[in-house]
Amino acid sequence: MTTLNPPARPPAPSARATPPAPGRLRPVRHRSVGRGVNLGLCAVAGLYTLLPLVWLLFAITKTLPDLYGSNGFAPSGFHLWANLRDLFKQDGGAYPRWLLNSVLYAGAGAGLGTLASVMAGYTFAKYSFPGREKLYGLVVAGVLVPGTALAVPLYLLFSGVHLTNTVWSVIVPVAANPFGVYLARVYAAGSIPDELLEAARMDGAGELRTFFTVGLRLMGPGALTIFLMQFVSIWNNFFLPLVMLTDSRLFTTSLGLFTWNSSTSQNPDYLRMVVVGSAVSVVPLLILFLTLQRWWRRGLAEGGLR
C-alpha cells in the first residue's frame, strides 16, 4: 500500500524540464550511426501506430463497393462528404445524437468526478482528522478494483432500483474516481502553501470558503489534468453503457456503432456507416489531445510516480 501514499520526496520537476545535457552525447563518429538506428526504430513504431489510422483515412472516402473492391491503402474516388451526410442522416439522425450523448456523459461524469476528487484530495492533504488514513485506505482499495469487474453487479444494483436505461446509470458510477483523489492529494500537497490557507482563515473565511477561493484556484492545473484523464476513460468506456442502456436514443457513439456493426448482415451499408462513424468519433478526443498536450504529459508524469 505504501506506494499509493503521496511520495515523500518531491517529484523533481526540475530534472524533467531540463533539456538533455550536451555531455550525454557520445563521440561524434558514433553519433550519426546511432541516430540513424534510433530514428529507424522509432519510425517503425510510428508506422505501426499509423497503419490502421491511414487505412481508416482512405476508407472514409470510399463507397461501399470500393471498401471491398479497392486497395485499402490507396484512394478510390472521393466520397467523404456524401459519406458524412449519410452518416448523420442514417436511422433518423441517430449518430449526432450518440455523439452528443457521449460528450454529455463524459463531460458531466468527469466534471462531477473531478470536483469531488479535488475536494477530497485537498482535504486529505491539508487537514489532519481522526480516521483520515482509514478513509484514504478506501481510496487505495478503489484504485485496485477494476471498473469492468463491477459492470455486471452495477447493472444488477441499478435494475434493482429501476434506474437502468437512464443517463444516471452511465454517469454516476463512472464519476467516482479514486485515482483522481490520489492525484489531487499529491497536487494539493505540492501546490498550496499552508500560510495562504492560514491567511484566509485569519480573514474569517470558513473551511469551505477557503477551499473554493484559495484551494480550488491553486489546484486548477491539476484539476484540468484529472478532468482530461477521466473524460477520456469515460468516453472510451464500452462495457457499462452496453449493460445499462437499451434505448437507442441514450446510446453512446461506441455502443451505437457496436449495434450497427452487429447489423451488417441485414444491411451491408452499415459497414460504411461504422467505418465513417468510427473516424468521426475519434475526432473530438484528438482535438482535445492536440490542443491540451502539455496537460496530458503532466498527468502521465504524475501517474508514473505511483
Binding site: A116, S117, A120, A175, A176, N177, F211
Partner: peptide, 18 residues
C-alpha cells in the same frame, strides 16, 4: 462536507454493487 461528494459517489460505484 468536503469529503462527502466523493464518498457518496464511491458508495454508489464501488461499495453498493460489491
Amino acid at each position: 462536507l468536503l469529503l462527502a461528494p466523493f464518498y457518496l459517489l464511491f458508495a454508489v460505484a464501488f461499495v453498493a454493487p460489491l
